[in-house]
């Protein structure tokens, strides 16, 4: 794992001047990924916040090749690049090692890009897929996605007298991709940069498809002041809403176990999208959400213990 001192001597390949909101965690994530991946990397971005803010014509924040295709096919585009690279290598036209990193937001990964991602993983392309999960369609104005947590207010699951926010639990994409039996699947968060950069480094050295799902707190959509982005990420891990773990060759390993598991409300009460959950009448929603978090965490603990 590179230390901060080693990393700081590297040049930023995702540079300033991009137009992400102040305090955007997704730009921290991409910066950290680009630092670790190095200059022999090709990035592919699905339509979404990070594509829109980083490549507004005629400006680009990338100092490495970046390709945007469409919303649903960043994994397919990545697999095309990887296949071309393999072919060129076979014919001796290229000798150096090149990393292919495809990324997308939760909309472009959980929902719209799911089939192309599933296909790329099944075809065993040697690439890393990175999902920065901000838990809704933030770029288009905060619509619910299948990653939006239970009880969260979005413009298409508005909290009011009829419903108290989103009515469904989020899809567990990390496990869904792990079910593809690929060599490496991980879940990470930007506050733990050491764990995250280590996972990216590991994913890039492993041959075959790898997938990392990163939580990306969003000041705009989660409704909190921008300076709390890293705190939000930290609390999500400490409440076990977003456990940091990896699945290597089918074996679960938890990378961070909080000393004291905090109640979910510690995390939700700081966010405007859960504001309605603070009222007495919505107490059952909080309890239900807590129960689901506990269930998943206990399941994960058991899996890690049994080494499955």
């Amino acid at each position: 794992m590179p230390s901060l001192k080693q990393l700081s001597s590297e040049k930023d390949l995702f540079t300033y001047g991009h137009r992400a909101c102040a305090g955007c965690a997704a730009s921290i994530i991409l910066r950290q990924v680009a630092l670790v991946a190095g200059k022999n990397t090709i990035f592919v971005g699905a339509t979404g916040c990070m594509e829109v803010v980083s490549t507004i014509f005629p400006y680009t924040a990338w100092k490495v090749p970046f390709l945007h295709n469409a919303f649903e096919n960043s994994a397919a585009t990545g697999s095309g690049i990887e296949t071309t690279y393999r072919s060129l290598k076979k014919r001796g036209k290229i000798t150096k090692k090149i990393n292919v990193i495809a990324f997308g937001g939760d909309g472009g990964t959980y929902d719209i890009g799911f089939q192309s991602l599933s296909g790329a993983m099944e075809r065993r392309h040697d690439m890393l897929y990175l999902c920065y999960n901000n838990e809704a369609y933030m770029n288009t104005g905060i619509q619910r996605s299948s990653a939006t947590p239970f009880g969260a207010h979005t413009t298409t699951s508005p909290a009011g007298t009829v419903i108290p926010g989103k009515q469904q639990f989020p899809k567990d994409l990390t496990e869904a991709i792990a079910a593809h039996d690929i060599p490496y699947v991980a879940q990470a968060a930007p506050h733990n940069w050491a764990d995250f950069t280590k996972k990216v480094e590991k994913a890039l050295t492993i041959e075959g498809p790898t997938f990392i799902n990163v939580l990306s707190p969003c000041p705009l959509g989660w409704v909190y002041p921008p300076h709390l982005s890293i705190k939000m990420s930290k609390l999500a891990a400490e409440t076990c809403f977003w456990p940091l773990y990896e699945v290597e060759n089918g074996i679960h390993k938890i990378n961070f176990k909080p000393r004291e598991k905090k109640p979910l409300i510690e995390w939700t009460k700081l966010q405007g999208r859960f504001r309605h959950l603070l009222s007495e009448s919505n107490k059952h929603i909080v309890e239900e959400a807590q129960k689901e978090v506990d269930r998943k965490w206990n399941r994960l603990l058991k899996m890690a213990e049994a080494k499955i």
């Binding site: 540079t15 300033y16 001047g17 991009h18 137009r19 980083s54 507004i56 005629p58 400006y59 680009t60 924040a61 990338w62 100092k63 490495v64």
Partner: peptide, 9 residues
């Protein structure tokens, strides 16, 4: 590459 460095935010 990195032309966003001309766009001051």
């Amino acid at each position: 590459p990195g032309s966003s460095e001309d766009f001051k935010t």
